[in-house]
Amino acid sequence: MFLKPGDWIKGESLDGELIIGYVDSLLPDIPDGAVKVTVVTSDNDKKIGKTIPFLSKQVKALPVSNVSNKTQIQFLIDLALATGDKEWFMKLSSELKSMMQHVME
């Protein structure tokens, strides 16, 4: 598996907790690979917002999806704000602005 920082993943902790988050950094010194994941959502609320290590075999990359409507972009903008990702926020805001201009034409 070839993960890189910023990739969205889903996985299961050793305690059986389901998580969705993004790769914060790689831990190449661990045999078979490992990543540090910033948890965005989980069935254990105490994990949300924390950055925790996972073995690469514990996680699976989520497919990249294309955003097609205003509601989806607004949700992702909220997510970008929650995760502090300024670059992603700016990109999404620009997409929303462009979408709104097309509607007004």
Rank of each mutant, 00 (worst) to 15 (best):
Q74N: 14
N66R: 09
L96A: 01
D32N: 13
S93N: 08
Q72I: 11
F75D: 12
K36C: 03
V103M: 10
Q74Y: 10
G16Q: 05
M99W: 05
V35R: 01
S98P: 00
I73V: 15
H102S: 07
S98L: 08
S93Y: 07
M99R: 06
G6S: 04
S94C: 08
D45C: 02
V59P: 05
K36R: 13
L81R: 15
M90I: 12
D29V: 07
K36E: 05
E95V: 12
P63S: 09
E105Q: 03
L3V: 15
K10D: 04
G49M: 12
L81P: 04
S42L: 08
L62V: 00
V59H: 03
A80L: 06
Q74S: 11
G84C: 07
K60Y: 00
L18D: 00
A61G: 04
W88E: 03
P53A: 02
E95C: 07
S65H: 06
G84H: 08
Q58L: 04
I30N: 06
E95P: 00
F2N: 11
A82Y: 14
F75L: 14
E105H: 01
V59F: 08
L62D: 00
E105G: 01
S98T: 14
V37T: 05
K60E: 07
S42Q: 05
K57F: 15
S13G: 06
K97H: 10
E12V: 15
V103T: 06
G84R: 14
G6E: 01
V23T: 06
K4N: 10
T71L: 10
I48C: 01
F54R: 03
M104V: 00
A61N: 04
T83V: 15
V37R: 02
T71Q: 11
S93D: 09
K91F: 08
S13L: 11
D24T: 09
V35A: 11
A34C: 09
G11W: 02
I20G: 02
K57E: 14
L96G: 01
L76W: 07
L27E: 06
K86Q: 07
L26Q: 00
F54G: 02
I48D: 01
M100Q: 15
V67P: 01
V40N: 03
G84E: 10
W88Q: 01
P63L: 08
W8D: 00
L62Y: 04
L92S: 02
F2I: 11
G11T: 00
G16M: 07
S94Y: 10
S42N: 04
T38C: 12
I52G: 02
L76M: 08
M1K: 10
Q74M: 14
D15V: 01
V40R: 02
D45M: 08
L96Y: 03
L81V: 12
D85R: 11
S56D: 11
A80I: 02
D29T: 09
G49S: 10
I30K: 09
T41V: 08
S56T: 13
G11A: 02
V39L: 15
L76I: 01
